[in-house]
């Protein structure tokens, strides 16, 4: 599983870093993102680009997002 940690980075760096990591993500791999706030606008980008994701709010106030390619129907 690939991991990208964007906690504490100012906009738009989290977006850029997550996007760069997605470019190298293998078809059956998962990208784990650690981020300091829930990135609602990222969800639009993921949906438009054909990814699915699951967000978990961590107890320390950060968020963990697991991103995979959406299955083709």
């Amino acid at each position: 599983m690939q991991q990208v940690d964007v906690r504490g980075l100012p906009p738009p760096e989290p977006f850029i870093n997550i996007n760069a990591a997605l470019q190298t993500l293998a078809a059956n791999d998962t990208l784990k993102v650690l981020i300091h706030r829930e990135p609602y606008p990222l969800y639009d980008l993921l949906r438009d680009s054909g990814y699915q994701w699951q967000t978990t709010a961590l107890t320390d106030g950060n968020f963990e997002i697991l991103i995979t390619r959406a299955l083709c129907k």
């Binding site: 829930e38 639009d44 949906r47 699915q52 699951q54």
Partner: peptide, 9 residues
């Protein structure tokens, strides 16, 4: 946990 389907934000 938050589902991965969302409408246009």
């Amino acid at each position: 946990q938050i589902a991965s389907l969302s409408t246009e934000q």
